[in-house]
Design a binder for these strands. Structure first.
Lengths: 338, 338
DNA sequence: CTGTTAGCGCGTTCAA
DNA sequence: TTGAACGCGCTAACAG
């Protein structure tokens, strides 16, 4: 591969002139410039991003660590981040922690070693906030995505989970529901915890006793499944809310095995949900994250932070949409009516 | 950030000794070694991947360009590639061409400029094979993913599209279907073309006239939708096959608008399909790609090629699974029976 | 307007 | 068993 020296020789100029032509960083005589351009053409020269980055002390790249690349919501965020990154002339380095704290830490270190100009982080469930502390000491800007830690001094982009859950629950309570199962998933995940909080908010406002509700937050899917099954068996439950797509899938399967149909036997709603929800039955009421836009917003915050390190951290909460569908309608609430 | 000079000073050794300790590239006296390790610890030194890559002329990174990061099948491939990449100690640089030939070309150039050690490419629909020619001249190994060009001398990983479609069609023909609509999508995409070929194979073998079938390959979704609607309207069609998830969504919606139900009025099958197909009605017969494994396989081929440039290119076709479900059963075929 | 030169941080000869 | 010194390819400060 040709390098700048080759080009300089062929154009009979100094290597710095080549550099300046390439980067438009100072004026060069049109004819000289043309000679350089021709030489570049003829040698097939391409700038070496590595050497350039080493010298400039910036790579024009950002790192993204997601906690579960397999989940559709995260896949969409990745998509959004990539899209916004190219828009800003940044290359994306992608890593997946698979909800594993160690892998997350290694991924972050790898990306920092590669000198990414910024880092977007959707943290793994079991990951200690302490790791972030050390990250805060680094000079590399960090944006937290989806899983937020408001008490930490980072730029953050998430969804209005608490409020959305409250809106959803308000609706369900208004429809007459008094006995819920919330399949919340790992309580260490802030996103999920916020959703449970919103649930409590709504019940409190409606004077519905929280103690009579079943909140399943076991980390082990098999255990959660068993708990859901037994809760359904014990009777009285009129509505199930799942806090993520995998949990929704688990819950729907459990309902099926218990011989229960949505919405006839029990109402059902979920966060994140499934693709093309209007094409299939049951049509599931869903609180949907603007996942792509969250990715885009994260990049925007990151780019702004890269431009100016000073300025206090900002937390952006994007609004989720409450998509009401058949799974929370028309079912039989006689058993809970007075 | 501390560098090797700092470490060398603190350990009172030369920088080359530090390097050798770091890389285990030659024997060093245990005590010297320990001094270095301590110094690394105390300075918080981390190897600079950029400088290292520049010097070694390899980056331990690979690039992946997908044609549509928004499609679930590609998201899974990305997941698989990432997973296999870390396994091999490689960092993943991700780019999305969004089915745009220009974007694809720019993405490839960006990644090459960053000196990725290898490139995995799921090509955009409209992308000219010529671009690949110039790629072949580069020394960077390339693996084609999903969208294969068997006539080109690259390692390639795809699915057995033709054979899978043939199996699917065999089944449908055996069930009595004689009039199909195949919504194939962009005929320039090899994957889709292969599927149409498999369809023709099956019909040929079963002596069912291909000319009586409707194959919709218009690139414009709106046009394809209209063509499908009119085909359905004209009557006689008993089965619709979609060749990708977006096309399946479009087709199902069109069926719905036409007042047709699956499988009662018309049988339906698709490639790639939807997540959790057993939780929802209609349960759709699906030919499913091992997308994750395809990503893994692509990395494996790439790594092997990086190790030994010589050896003729290999084409790997992973087997798809034919998931038979209700959408191709129990429907009324009286209209086509003698 | 252009050229010379000193590193960026590291790996790797070549000598000792 | 270790160290000195060169250069990967580039940008930027300085000199002219």
């Amino acid at each position: 591969m040709a390098n700048m020296v080759d080009v300089a020789k062929m154009a009979d100029v100094s290597i710095s002139t080549v550099s300046h032509v390439l980067n438009g960083t100072r004026h060069v005589q049109p004819e000289t410039r043309q000679r350089v351009i021709d030489a570049i053409e003829r040698t097939g020269y391409r700038q070496d991003a590595l050497a350039r980055a080493l010298r400039r002390a910036r790579t024009d790249s950002i790192g993204l660590v997601v906690s579960d690349a397999g989940e559709p919501a995260f896949a969409e965020m990745v998509h959004g981040v990539e899209s916004a990154a190219v828009e800003h002339g940044l290359t994306l380095l992608l890593a997946n922690s698979a909800e594993d704290a160690d892998r997350e830490e290694r991924a972050v270190e790898t990306l920092l070693d590669r000198r990414v100009d910024g880092l977007i982080l959707a943290r793994a469930a079991g990951s200690e906030p302490a790791i972030l502390q050390s990250l805060g000491d680094e000079k590399t800007p960090v944006v937290l995505l989806d899983r937020l830690y408001s008490e930490l001094p980072f730029d953050q982009v998430g969804a209005d989970n608490r409020d959305s859950m409250r809106r959803l629950t308000d609706h369900l309570v208004a429809a007459g529901h008094r006995r819920f199962v919330v399949v919340s998933g790992d309580a260490r995940v802030p996103t999920l915890q916020e959703r449970v909080d919103g649930f409590r908010d709504a019940l409190w406002a409606a004077r519905v006793p929280y103690e009579e509700q079943v909140v399943i937050d076991d980390v082990d899917p098999a255990v959660a499944r068993a708990q859901l099954a037994s809760a359904l068996e014990s009777g009285g439950i009129t509505c199930v809310i799942a806090c993520s797509t995998p949990l929704a899938a688990m819950a729907l399967e459990t309902l099926g095995r218990a011989g229960l149909t949505t919405p006839r036997d029990v109402a059902f709603a979920t966060f994140d949900g499934f693709a093309h929800p209007d094409l299939f039955e049951p049509r599931i009421t869903t609180v949907r994250q603007p996942a792509f836009d969250m990715g885009v917003a994260a990049v925007r915050l990151l780019v702004e932070r890269m431009a100016s390190a000073e300025s206090s951290p900002r937390i952006v909460r994007l609004r989720q949409t409450l998509e009401l569908r058949g799974s929370t309608e028309d079912h039989d609430l006689r058993q809970v009516r007075p």
